[in-house]
Amino acid sequence: MPIRTIVRLTPAKPKAGEGFKLTVLAQHPNEPGTRRDAQGNLIPANYINLVEVYFEGEKVAEARLGPSIATNPNYAFKFKAEKPGTYTVRLKDTSGDTGEAQVKLELA
């Protein structure tokens, strides 16, 4: 099942040369593998372990994550606005499921 992923920029339209934040929200339990259910059984680990950001097809940032990230995680990155283009965010979890979302950078 694809991981539901949302990306947004703040400010939405930065000026050329200005820094901006790229925020990713994902819908995922991020099971750490140490949590017990109501019957006391351990819920198997399944968490997002890779987040990649691409700009116009080129990889510009990569985060490798362990089992200690919160449920429904959000990640924030900072970039400098140089030219307009498209950011693509790709996620992958330990079960092999993936998520993808895009956002267009327009300059003010």
């Binding site: 949590r35 017990r36 006391g40």
Partner: peptide
């Protein structure tokens, strides 16, 4: 929905 139970389930009881 008690975060303190969640903490016990996730880290202490395991």
């Amino acid at each position: 929905h008690c975060p303190y139970c969640e903490q016990m389930n996730t880290f202490v009881l395991s």
